[in-house]
């Protein structure tokens, strides 16, 4: 039984062909690395939606901001992406607090569905404003930060060091955030708030401060994802909304309001994108990926769930 399962997996992934095995594993590794960045981008969005019910369309723009800040910092000093991530964290936290005052606080008295739409419109407004500010600040050209890092050879496989480190950092960030939510008082307050705001308030949890902290944490994740992203791919100053849409889809596939689901969905999306190009024609990649997601949504999610 076990053996037949193994053969099935090997055949399905093209691993039964010994000559193709290194190529397939190479694609698998790359898919995981890409998925790591997607996961980090999506987890922040999921956190904001789960705790505050805010569909923050400015999330991708915050990622672009991270990329721009990193690019600007390189003029001052050749920081590595990981060092800069540590330095930038407090900045993103403060930005998250400010964003909260703009897209969450004004709508606290609205009903839930009205609040979602109002904050969605407000965050879209913020995204548009940021787009123009980015162009004004850094110019029209794509944000593309070059950072040299060696590629390692491991069992005849090429492991791009930079992608591996960034993947590791994405995992650490998501891990630390999960620990924060589970082990700290503030984290527990956030989780309580996501389940029942009124009951949480009765237990003395301040919804304002707690949701502000949640958006701060989400903004940190967006900013870090932007830094990682720009090291790997060029990012236009107006690419924020595209990034948000990508993240939104991952969040829906993985489930809103938790960290593990979007993280896994992000990894899967990375793998899907890589393998679709390997087994099918590349041009059909998006069609396959989005069709699968729709089928998944229709079959597994959403029925009477919100």
């Amino acid at each position: 039984m076990l053996n037949s399962g193994r053969i099935f997996i090997l055949t399905a992934f093209g691993l039964s062909d010994v000559k193709r095995r290194p190529s397939v594993i190479q694609v698998l590794i790359s898919g995981l690395f890409l998925g790591g960045v997607y996961a980090l981008l999506a987890v922040g969005l999921s956190l904001a939606f789960g705790i505050m019910g805010v569909l923050n369309l400015a999330h991708g723009s915050l990622a672009v901001l991270g990329a721009i800040l990193y690019k600007k910092s390189l003029v001052l000093h050749p920081f590595s992406p990981w060092i800069f991530c540590v330095l930038a964290t407090p900045i993103f936290l403060c930005l998250g607090f400010i964003l909260h005052l703009i897209i969450v606080t004004p709508f606290r008295n609205l009903s839930q569905s009205e609040g979602v739409v109002a904050s969605l419109i407000a965050s879209l407004g913020v995204a548009f404003i940021l787009e123009d500010l980015f162009v004004w600040w850094q110019g029209w050209e794509p944000i593309s930060t070059y950072f040299s890092f060696p590629t390692f050879n491991l069992f005849n496989l090429k492991i791009p060091g930079l992608r591996a480190v960034l993947m590791g950092m994405a995992a650490i960030t998501i891990g630390l955030s999960t620990l924060f939510l589970k082990k700290t008082d503030r984290g527990r307050s956030m989780r309580a708030l996501s389940q029942d705001q009124e009951t949480a308030s009765l237990y003395g949890i301040n919804p304002g401060i707690t949701s502000m902290s949640a958006l701060g944490l989400a903004t940190i994740m967006a900013g870090l994802a932007g830094i990682f992203y720009s090291v790997l791919y060029p990012l236009g100053p107006r690419d924020g909304l595209d990034l948000t849409l990508k993240a939104l889809f991952i969040v829906v596939a993985g489930g809103m309001g938790n960290l593990r689901g979007p993280a896994v969905a992000g990894l899967l999306l990375g793998l899907l994108e890589s393998f679709a190009g390997f087994f099918f024609t590349y041009t059909s990649t998006d069609t396959i990926v989005y069709s699968l997601l729709i089928v998944y949504l229709v079959l597994k999610r959403g029925r009477r769930r919100q």
Binding site: G31, L34, G277, T283, T285, D286
Partner: peptide
């Protein structure tokens, strides 16, 4: 032939 938004080129490169 790859779509404009392609992020991972490993399959093509191998």
């Amino acid at each position: 032939v790859l779509p404009a938004g392609t992020h991972d080129f490993t399959a093509a490169i191998v």
